[in-house]
Design a protein around this nucleic acid. Structure first.
Lengths: 225, 225
DNA sequence: TGAAAACTGTACCGTGGGTACAGGAGGGGA
DNA sequence: TCCCCTCCTGTACCCACGGTACAGTTTTCA
């Protein structure tokens, strides 16, 4: 029971690293069992086929991903009361976490599955879709909270704004990996942060601001940091 | 000569569609020759191995990609003299082109290669890297032109800003494909457009703008965190 | 100590990537 | 007319890999 879980996780660890580098099709079960130090029979004891492995891999990845976002943004929430400042801090923390990764971000399994879709069953595709929708809900929720206090400088759709966070992350990973510039991803997150800050905070703080906006409480909150 | 080119292109067409749906590892030469209506020997007459196919595929894709951007942004340049307005129009045209794709964007080969890197030789990885660098140069050039006329509301690094256009495109493709929402990609491009507009255009057009700008620039910017 | 869990070992099958090579159709130039 | 070159087809074969089947062995833990 205990032992089984452990071996299973070791396989998943090895598989995840391999899949993110070579894709599912490029990762052979053979190499996984060699690196894990298990036999072929042992492998198929844990996963009845490659699709089953993919399913477990994706679910584990998504859970872990969610956990990380939970931690970061709840920590940011603890440090900042204002929803905007808290979100901005969250993006900062995220970018720091990303730039601390020694070899850069290894890649996103959601993207890997996206570019491999046809070979998986519907269940995996649905899981993947739900993961992206969860991001949308997560960031959407945060932006809605922000909008209860601040009004955006330009009209934006909350879901589209939330999606942009995901886009920049996914795209940043692709750029970072392709360019072999580990820092590019973190920089992109900070660019997104700039966008959000600019969207909700008035650029200049001066008494004149009050004349521009009906509501000025956002200004006061934004100033003290 | 003529005939050979034609067959070769037919193979590439079939291969591109397949690879974008299933990745390189998930695409078998067998299916390509069936769909192209050619024999295995015929296939290997044109491409000595799968790596060679990938190389041709990627080069063709990148060329085509560059051509599309050239067309869009040079058309925008013809219609608008101002570099900012021209760029904003370009993004609008791009988003329209993307939302006109009947089944959504089929996927980006650069991303596919990125998530498959280890199985290709250095040459392909370099080609891919150069493609992303070309995007950076392209958009960077445009932003530099813009900055000769407009000053950004917040300090930004030109390359990072240029990369963000690529990020949003790549990420938007992933989201769009995964969610099976063809329009999401076009919406993301428009969000990027909003960002650029907000960054360079003053939000409110009133005599106060000029006044505020000189006086208090920088107070609101990133001192926090 | 005994049953269930967690494997190992062996043998086998089909598919796919890839090689080798012989040969044929068709067009274009000498 | 002939020949050569391009563009293929056909056949045969090799190995790697995914996957199945199943018998046997060790480890764990209740």
């Amino acid at each position: 029971m205990r032992k089984g879980e452990e071996t299973r996780n070791r396989i998943l660890d090895v598989a995840e690293a391999a899949v993110l580098q070579k894709g599912f099709g490029g990762t052979s079960i053979e190499e996984l069992i060699v690196e894990t130090g298990i036999t072929k029979s042992g492998f198929f004891y844990h996963f009845k086929d490659k699709n089953e492995l993919a399913k477990a891999l994706l679910n584990r990845y998504i859970e872990n991903d969610e956990r990380i976002y939970d931690e970061i943004f709840s920590r940011a929430r603890d440090l900042m009361d204002d929803p905007l400042q808290s979100f901005l801090l969250g993006l900062k923390l995220l970018s720091e976490l990303l730039s601390d990764l020694p070899n850069g971000h290894p890649g996103c399994l959601v993207a890997t599955v996206c570019y491999y879709e046809r070979l998986f069953d519907r269940e995996i595709q649905e899981t993947n879709r739900n993961a992206v929708l969860a991001w949308r809900r997560r960031f959407g929720r945060m932006f809605r909270e922000i909008m209860e206090v601040y009004s955006p400088r330009e009209p934006v759709d909350v879901d589209q704004l939330a999606d942009m966070v995901s886009s920049v992350l996914e795209g940043g990973i692709v750029l970072s990996k392709t360019l072999k510039e580990p820092n590019t991803l973190a920089e992109q997150v900070l660019m997104m942060r700039t966008f959000v800050r600019m969207l909700f905070l008035p650029a200049i703080e001066s008494p004149l601001v009050a004349f521009r906006h009906d509501q000025t409480y956002g200004v006061a909150d934004g100033r003290h940091l």
